[in-house]
């Protein structure tokens, strides 16, 4: 009895120590180390399985998704019916192919990316995680994507690449709690830092001087200040609210992303990397 109990504890302690060792190795090592290679390998092995499963299971997932969001789906259905009727009246109904073409054309005509080179990729899945807001792209290092590259849609900033394997890239969206974007207010030119607070939650902008004039609806773009992780001038969001902070020394500003992050299909990865530090 004692021997069995000791064996149980031994196995448990061994698993805990292995987990802690992996955490330590991952946190201390670079992405090009053994742990990074293991992660990239796992992504590449799982990618085709996931793609095949997505094709088969997607209708089931959509069905269950519809069940849990019945009220929302019903009101959305009514809204879309009204919209279709309106568009039919004006002869503007477009097919899915036309919509995709329009999205791709928008991506080809980015006004904010300047002459930066870019790679168009398709979103293949959204993360099931409750703690991270990420999407996965169908292209990786084989297409020239690298960790840290900014990702945009036709409207503005979506996020940045945080993991990349040969065939897949994981993009951390700007609403994720780990996302911090240096931003500039278009009217005053003052700067701040846009911190994600999770899906469905407005982005909080910190470090905004109390004297800054902020207007509701004003567009906020990436600041591109020294050591910024995004190029300058990419639209991030529109101001939703602004009020003095409790200590009166700063402004509490919230913004809504300019991109509809719940409906992402084609995105553009800008082949721009932050300048290396000194």
């Amino acid at each position: 009895m004692y021997r069995r109990s000791n064996r149980r504890r031994f196995v448990f302690v061994l698993l805990l120590l292995t987990s802690i060792t992996l955490i330590t190795l991952d946190m201390r090592g670079s992405s090009s180390g053994a742990i990074g290679s293991l992660r990239r390998g796992a992504h590449d092995v799982f990618a085709p399985i996931q793609s095949a499963a997505d094709k088969v299971i997607a209708p089931v997932g959509d069905f269950f998704g519809g069940l849990t969001r019945y009220g929302h789906v019903k009101s959305e259905n009514q809204r879309l019916k009204a919209r279709i009727a309106d568009l039919q009246a004006h002869g503007l109904v477009e097919s899915d192919a036309q919509r995709q073409l329009r999205e791709l054309t928008q991506l080809e005509q980015l006004t904010f990316a300047g002459d930066l080179k870019s790679i168009v990729a398709r979103v293949v899945s959204t993360s099931p995680s409750n703690f991270q807001v990420t999407v996965e792209l169908d292209k990786g290092t084989a297409a020239g994507i690298a960790k840290g590259m900014p990702v945009v849609s036709g409207a503005g900033l979506v996020g940045r690449v945080v993991e990349v394997s040969k065939e897949r890239a994981t993009v951390l969206l700007i609403t994720d709690g780990e996302s911090h974007v240096g931003v500039r207010f278009s009217e005053s030119g003052d700067t701040g830092v846009a911190n994600g607070a999770g899906a469905r939650t407005p982005i909080q902008v910190g470090f905004v001087n109390a004297g800054t004039k902020v207007t509701t609806g004003e567009v906020v773009t990436t600041s591109g200040l020294q050591d910024a992780i995004f190029p300058p001038g990419v639209p991030v969001g529109k101001v939703r609210s602004a009020k003095p902070a409790a200590d009166k020394l700063a402004l509490d500003v919230t913004i809504e992303p300019v991109v509809d992050l719940s409906h992402l299909e084609f995105l553009k990865v800008l082949t721009w990397l932050p300048p290396a530090g000194p």
């Binding site: 196995v11 448990f12 698993l15 805990l16 292995t18 987990s19 802690i20 060792t21 992996l22 955490i23 190795l25 991952d26 946190m27 742990i35 293991l38 992660r39 796992a42 992504h43 799982f46 993360s127 099931p128 995680s129 703690f131 991270q132 990420t134 945080v162 993991e163 994981t170 951390l172």
Partner: peptide, 26 residues
Amino acid sequence: GAALGFFCGLAVDLVVQTTPLGLSAL
């Protein structure tokens, strides 16, 4: 139970999460 937890967590850490490898396993 612990062994299943370790392997399930490791799979999630490798494929789903971008947090340190081993965190879900732990």
